Simulated assay, not measured.
Amino acid sequence: MQDPNADTEWNDILRAKGILAPKEKEVSEEDVIDILESTIQEKSRGKQLEDLTLDELNENEDEIDEEDERIFEAYRMQRLSEMQAASLRAKFGEVREITREDYVREVNKAGDGVWIVLHVYKQGIPLCTLINQHMTRLAQKFPESKFLKSISSVCIPNYPDKNLPTIFIYFEGELKKQFVGPHEFGGMNLTFSEFEWMISQTGAVKTDMEESPKRQIKDVMNIAIRESAINRDDSDDDDY
């Protein structure tokens, strides 16, 4: 006798005519996850599973049915892994002062996957001071990258002042990009957003900006110039 639960064209016809009862829907792993999330939401004041902290996951573990335990444990381990990965990435977060003796350890032996932004500067140069301020903010915003600074006379003997400020970008100890001299930075008008964009173009940080702030400023200026020209034309027309 043919299996009434089999997926055949004949059985589909019989189900459509009401001769066979509708086939029971198989419960997939996605369905189990949805049920699990719904259960946890009820017990966690409406929070989604992915929004729970590790402590909250642990608190709810005893309230999960046995058949859901495997999926729940997978979520818990995933969350723990994400937290550990984030902790490893966010191991910097400040600008460290180094000397020539520190260079090999801090730059050449920085480790796999580490981006380094090194500012060579001199005290008393306003643009160097400005960039150090931008470096501090950038280091806090992107703690997964290493930000370093070093006084030129300490780091590179006889390094000419005309080359300051200088930014060296390294990845895994290899020099990838350098910005040498004040002309590279546009002088004291350099904003934090412009500095962030500049560094992001080397790959050292992953900004959420979609285009250069300088372009945005230029667009605003162009609009203002066009509007000014239109206003002048209207004023000239009024004279006749």
Rank of each mutant, 00 (worst) to 15 (best):
R15D: 04
L57D: 06
A86I: 10
A229D: 08
E106I: 03
F168W: 09
E63K: 15
L80A: 12
L190D: 01
M188F: 05
Q48P: 00
K146R: 15
F179W: 03
K176L: 04
R100Q: 13
L54T: 11
M221I: 11
R100M: 11
M198F: 08
A6I: 09
K25Q: 09
N5L: 11
S81H: 13
K109P: 06
K206F: 06
D237Q: 10
V32F: 13
D219M: 14
M77K: 15
Q178C: 02
L52I: 01
V154R: 14
R96T: 12
M83N: 11
H183F: 13
N189L: 14
F147W: 04
I64D: 08
G181I: 01
E101Y: 10
E69G: 10
E66N: 08
F171V: 07
G93L: 06
P182C: 04
T207Y: 06
L138T: 10
S153A: 08
D238T: 09
A90P: 00
V95I: 07
E9D: 10
K214L: 12
I169C: 02
K43I: 01
P157M: 02
P143L: 05
E29H: 12
I225S: 08
P126Q: 09
M209I: 06
G111E: 02
N132V: 07
V220S: 05
I40Q: 01
Y75I: 08
Q216Y: 09
R137Y: 12
S235P: 02
E9G: 05
V107D: 00
I225G: 00
K23Y: 08
Q140C: 08
D239F: 15
T166L: 04
H183Q: 13
Q201S: 06
L14G: 00
D65T: 14
D68A: 10
T136W: 15
D55T: 06
M221L: 13
E73G: 03
E67R: 07
D12P: 01
V220Q: 12
E106Y: 11
I98E: 06
A86W: 08
E67I: 09
T129N: 07
R15V: 04
S228H: 11
L54R: 12
D219S: 07
E24Q: 07
V27N: 01
N58R: 15
T207R: 00
I199G: 04
D65R: 15
P160N: 12
A204L: 03
F185V: 02
P160I: 11
E94K: 13
K25T: 12
I223P: 01
K177W: 14
D51Y: 11
T99S: 11
E73C: 07
E82F: 13
A85V: 07
M198Y: 11
S235Y: 13
W197G: 02
A85Q: 13
S193N: 13
Q133K: 09
S44G: 00
G111C: 02
P182S: 03
E82Q: 11
R100H: 06
L36A: 05
D7F: 06
E59L: 12
T53I: 05
V95L: 09
T99H: 07
V154M: 11
Y121T: 10
A21W: 12
Q140G: 11
D34Y: 15
E194Q: 13
